[in-house]
Design a protein around this nucleic acid. Structure first.
Lengths: 300, 300
DNA sequence: AGCTTTTGCTCTCTTTTTGCGAACGCACCA
DNA sequence: TGGTGCGTTCGCAAAAAGAGAGCAAAAGCT
């Protein structure tokens, strides 16, 4: 059990999402359990922390009070943790990381590059694996943590952080769509599309979306390789459908534009940072994880 | 479970007492359970929090760091609790309190007197009972909390606060002993003594002390009434052996002097604030309890 | 209006965590 | 050399927490 009580952790998640079920998704804890903790916490503090609306939970002023304290405590704890790490001389160590092929380009190399400069003593070993192999390797202790898409709920694993990766249209910056802040999926019928094919993970949600909405995608090309799709878009062959992560590099460089698709039916694509529930993380691993968490919090 | 995690609560107790077993006595939790939490906490934080000495546990610098944070968090929580109380308009309510006869004079009336002025809306009902009856009344819900001496461990009760009450010599301010900061029990052989008799609770520990040390107390008078003993001391009849609590009033007024006895063999006399473990305290009760806790922390 | 979806909450069952008490090893002290 | 006090370990029982299905109510959608 982490330093703070279950109640505080659950409370923060619920306060952030305004909904027990959302918090349940993030924490990978049953909604009923979270509900009970919140109720019990309110009883202990003797105050209603949330007002119950049909749309979810909204903080009362009492709840806001507690939340601000919680935030401060969390920051304190983080600061304390790094103080402790510095105290015992964290400047060296090694970590084994599992990542899917999709992350071999993009933000992760950039992040690790910076890390090498600030903390040259830490060595990271990258292992590129299929998502479904990662769980086993993690449990066997062959790696400290894994970044994986849409992780199935394994009892032995815990999701420390997770991030919704927006799906969207990728086009040249000069294209009309590039001007939009967000786009409806029906646009896929109006422009020439270059779409992912199996075994790419993106193929699934796009297929689902097509079936659910009835939109007939104007497919002009398919490819089972992300880089191939991007290259074709760069050549002006059409508009790609990719995740933000796939296009991250080119978007940063201004070569491509990314416009997220807004659709209720869109199955979420989440990138999760998973660890073995029962294992103790090394200081180096913990450090890298917090770096990644910070990046998630800032960048996206 | 209270707002903070078990680990933090146990850690603070251990840090304060420098010993797991002492903390165990205070928290009324088995030492093994506390040990496990501390060990686990150290594992989670990845740092040794205590150095293990044969005499007990001493905080490492890392531990000190955590402790200061803990202290701040506790203060935050207290402040927050009163903010919440104010928010929902605590200025009224009622509490039922169980006390032993020994507390009908001394600090408690004074404390409650002040309270009446600052919070006139709160009504306290005092019930004077024998210690062994209090547990049952508490469990039955006839009172919110009880102040009792040397409470036996009842499963249904929890000790929220407890205070060691020093045993010592009570004499006129002009007496030689009054000049000492602390006194050895052997002094009881050198001055005329006025000692408590059964059924006073103090009779027991003094008897034990007499047997253990072999000191022959120069008893000139016995009484089964605290007030009687004090009156005789005031008349110059001898030196009394009483608890600090018994003499509190006269010491405050400067009429008597109190000198604590230092002796390893002295069975501790503790005054405990007990509540029903499963019951939810009213805001008024909680408020009064924190007032008493504050008094304990300051005054003694 | 009728439908599905989403919400918090409750219930029962299973798993995990925690507490307890006895025992162990160690260091100190008389 | 026993006794004392210390932290720690272990097995077992009890308490707490999680899982998952199901409920009523409200909102949004068709």
């Amino acid at each position: 059990m982490p330093v703070f009580s279950r109640f505080l952790r659950y409370f923060m998640a619920v306060a952030q999402h305004g909904s027990i079920r959302k918090a349940s998704d993030e924490l990978h804890i049953a909604a009923s359990a979270i509900d009970r903790q919140v109720l019990q916490g309110e009883k202990i503090l003797g105050t209603q922390l949330f007002e119950r609306l049909p749309s979810g939970l909204r903080l009362t002023t009492a709840g806001e009070l507690l939340l601000t304290s919680c935030r401060r405590w969390s920051r304190d704890l983080n600061a304390l943790q790094t103080q402790l790490d510095n105290l015992k001389g964290l400047r060296q160590g090694s970590t084994d990381i599992l990542i899917p092929d999709a992350l071999t380009k993009g933000f992760l190399p950039t992040l690790l590059g910076k890390l090498r400069q600030t903390h040259p003593g830490i060595m990271v070993s990258i292992h590129v694996r299929k998502s479904h192999d990662m769980g086993e390797l993690l449990v066997k202790g062959h790696a400290d943590f894994a970044l994986m898409f849409n992780p199935g709920h394994m009892r032995e694993l815990t999701v420390r952080t997770h991030k919704e990766i927006p799906l969207g249209f990728v086009c040249l910056p000069s294209h009309e769509i590039a001007g939009l802040d967000e786009a409806r999926f029906s646009l896929a019928a109006e422009y020439p599309m270059i779409v992912p094919a199996p075994p790419l993970a993106l193929w699934r949600p796009i297929g689902v979306l097509e079936a659910e909405t009835g939109v007939k995608v104007a497919t002009v090309a398919k490819a089972d390789n992300i880089q191939m799709i991007k290259s074709m878009v760069l050549e002006g062959a059409g508009v790609g459908i990719l995740s933000y992560l796939d296009a991250y590099d080119e978007v940063q460089k201004g070569q491509l534009a990314f416009t997220p698709i807004t659709n209720r039916k869109l199955p979420p694509l989440t990138l999760a940072l998973c660890v073995d529930r029962s294992r103790q993380l090394s200081t180096a691993a913990r450090f890298i994880i917090t770096e990644i968490e910070n990046f998630f919090a800032e960048q996206f």
